[in-house]
């Protein structure tokens, strides 16, 4: 079976979805990512969907699930590169991605993850001062 590679960059995991995923492949990605977050103690997950021609309710739900699993494991999820036609269609489909943050591209996504990790560190430091 095909398989979607997960790359580690510092404390982030990067996934670039390059194939039209059938449902089992999407579930496998969700499981593999969760496992990898635990093993690597990653703080951020970046999912590049710029090659995806559609996001339907199943793929949307998978992205939501990944984000909530990651959240439980103290990692933030950013989806990057959603095509405009996909974004327009998602709205009409009625699908919300509540736990998923989005950014235009991989660079901006990494900055978003970096900033939110640093913000959290800042809050902990401030807390310790009091």
């Amino acid at each position: 079976m095909e398989h979607i590679p997960i790359l580690k960059i510092g404390d982030c995991l990067l996934v670039s979805i390059q194939v039209d995923m059938h449902d089992r492949l999407a579930i496998a990605l969700q499981n593999n990512l969760t496992e990898k977050i635990v093993i690597t103690k990653a703080r951020g997950v970046l999912i590049d969907i710029s090659a995806l021609e559609i996001v339907d309710s199943f793929i949307g739900r998978t992205l939501n699930n990944i984000a909530s699993m990651a959240n439980v494991l103290d990692a933030i999820t950013v989806v990057v590169g959603m095509r405009p036609a996909v974004a327009i269609t998602l709205v009409e489909l009625g699908l919300n991605l509540p736990g998923v943050r989005t950014a235009l591209d991989v660079d901006k996504g990494l900055v978003l993850i970096r900033n939110s990790i640093d913000d959290e560190l800042g809050e902990i430091d401030a807390g310790e001062l009091n």
């Binding site: 449902d23 021609e53 559609i54 996001v55 339907d56 309710s57 199943f58 095509r83 405009p84 036609a85 996909v86 327009i88 269609t89 009409e92 489909l93």
Partner: peptide
């Protein structure tokens, strides 16, 4: 995708019908 492209649908219209088809097919 290939039929809607052949008929000359815009990218947004292609994406809408493909997404609808994916839902009903599942």
């Amino acid at each position: 995708r290939s039929r809607t492209a052949a008929v000359g649908f815009s990218l947004v219209d292609q994406t809408k019908l493909i997404t609808a088809a994916s839902e009903i097919a599942r």
